[in-house]
Design a protein around this nucleic acid. Structure first.
Lengths: 340, 340
DNA sequence: CTGTTAGCGCTTTCAT
DNA sequence: ATGAAAGCGCTAACAG
């Protein structure tokens, strides 16, 4: 293991000079720089990140908190984060909360004490009074860089990026209404989850706008997974007053819902129209190809990373935010309401 | 920030004693332990992992090298790794290689110099003479804990876990032959990729076993993605002598292949039977539901983590390995060959 | 069972 | 522009 001292000795300079050369922050003469670099390469010197971290309290690590990496949306977002961050030599530590508030707080703590330089939380829990949101805001107020995705914690120290999911949901309902649907249900995530809120609101807003009834039995909470979609759809189909169309909180749920329809001998879209959310890669190759509200998952991640980088450079910059558009992708799970 | 010295002073003991209490490795009297713990909690002491890492060269971090977290198989495997590792307070650093050997070597280096305590590589490149495989084996021989998944580097210092993918591929071909197919193609990953090799071999072995021709034009390499499957299938369909069935290297490719079939007006399974590999969550809800060789992705990950943990505890344990079974899941993308 | 004493390898004032 | 020196907070011999 060759250290900064070895290099210093060989180059005939002080250790601090070597440090400066490698961190290119102070001004060092061309000549010295060259000598140091020469010595370093001869000795195959490789700076030790741990020592550096201890001395400077900068680790070049950032934490990414998501609910589950197995969700394609999260995975794509994670790639967006990682790809942007690695250009600046940061590594990303991904932790899963499984949507459990307790676990979220726990991983948040763990990752924070590990000394990450910043945090991306996608999405944070929704309840602003909750212990972990207080935890997050506390850190942010102490100038610890945090950006949230999909849900803003309403504190000027917390940067955030989000998509216009609410508008996306409205576009979906508009589309459905345009096809003649009036009995439109919504399968949402558990209401406490942050990222789903815009979808709930968009659904409700659009229904009201069109003068359609907001029926409690048509708004069902589900796990945001294939299985969750399956059982939620089963509930809907058990109703006397069945909806003719349903908007779902994400594509996984939509796929599950379609699967249940098939199980019940119902044809999608002729008997039931279904709209998903996210436009994960499988949406396009599903059968029928899924009509869905596309969210820019990768870009949400990369933008979050960019905001975080800027914040880490400059702790007292004004609050940052980025809001990206969603886009309704009409494929083949939606059609005119049947006259039956 | 309260340090180990603060706690030591308050408890009236030496710093090293405090350290011992927190690492529960040495024997400390009940009484002292209690006093230290008391003092620590009063001061809200939280050990600094960075300092600990520098002093002990143990970081409680392990690296997980995969090709792409967006592949559901990798994502599930990653959860298997993370869930097992976090019980022992390790964090997992996930890096993607995108199947690029250069990138693999680069991330391997980066992660290694960060001081991870061990490495899981899933899968490593196949070429044993390649620079990065030499790199891996070198580290392992110097007692750096490494376990590979899906491909063994043929060195006794490298532990590994794999699945009987070859048997799985054989079972798939047996199934197809049982349905009367003789013109069976294979869409594989790029041949240099590690994990795909067993599938190639299984396909070939089974074809030979059944006395069926191994035609070059029926063995096509593709990106292991939906898009890769789409174009590979297009190649197959452009052939004069079209296969009636195809085994694919994974479900993504299978889904892409099915999509292309539909585009060409071909019915799956009546015109073409398709078998996937992995049994990702989408396989079951695909239409038609995908016949596929299920791999225990999560368990591959968790077993890899277990082997790694053991290896990290005991550097000179004998070589470890775990081989898990695959299982053919027959759904609805395979049927008897049509007499047409 | 516990204390003393050196570091781990780098950064960072403070000088010059 | 560069050097000297004092840590960052913890661990690990070694000694007793």
């Amino acid at each position: 293991m060759t250290t900064i001292y070895d290099v210093a000795k060989r180059a005939g300079v002080a250790p601090s000079t070597v440090s400066r050369v490698f961190n290119k922050n102070a001004s060092i003469s061309e000549k010295t720089t060259a000598r140091v670099l020469q010595a370093a390469s001869e000795l195959e010197y490789d700076p030790n990140p741990l020592a550096s971290a201890l001395a400077s309290s900068r680790t070049l690590m950032v934490g990414l908190v998501i609910s589950d990496i197995q969700n394609p949306f999260s995975a794509t977002l994670a790639r967006g984060v990682q790809d942007s961050l690695e250009r600046d030599r940061y590594i990303t530590i991904i932790v899963n909360t499984d949507g459990d508030p307790d676990k979220e707080l726990q991983v948040l703590r763990e990752i924070y004490r590990r000394g990450v330089d910043g945090l991306i939380i996608a999405p944070p829990q929704r309840n602003n009074a909750s212990e972990h949101n207080r935890y997050i805001v506390d850190r942010a107020r102490k100038n610890f860089p945090i950006v949230t995705v999909g849900n803003w914690l309403k504190d000027p120290k917390v940067d955030f990026v989000t998509s216009r999911a609410q508008d996306g949901a409205i576009a979906a309902i508009d589309h459905l209404v345009g096809l003649g649907h009036e009995k439109i249900a919504f399968i949402g995530g558990h209401y406490t989850r942050g990222i789903a809120v815009g979808r709930w609101l968009g659904y409700q807003e659009a229904m009201i706008k069109h003068g359609l009834p907001l029926m409690l039995e048509w708004m069902v909470e589900a796990d945001v997974s294939i299985v969750g979609g399956e059982s939620a759809m089963a509930c809907l189909l058990a109703l006397d007053n069945r909806p003719t169309a349903v908007l779902t909180v994400n594509d996984l749920v939509a796929l599950g819902a379609i699967s249940t329809c098939r199980l019940y001998g119902l044809h999608v879209p002729h008997d039931v129209s279904i709209v998903g959310f996210d436009d994960i890669p499988f949406a396009a190759v599903a059968v029928p190809p899924l009509t869905t509200v596309a969210q820019p998952a990768y870009e949400l991640g990369s933008r979050a990373a960019e905001l975080l980088l800027r914040r880490m450079h400059c702790a007292d910059a004004p609050q940052q935010q980025a809001v990206l558009d969603c886009r309704l992708v009409i494929r083949q799970t939606t059609t005119c309401v049947s006259s039956a």
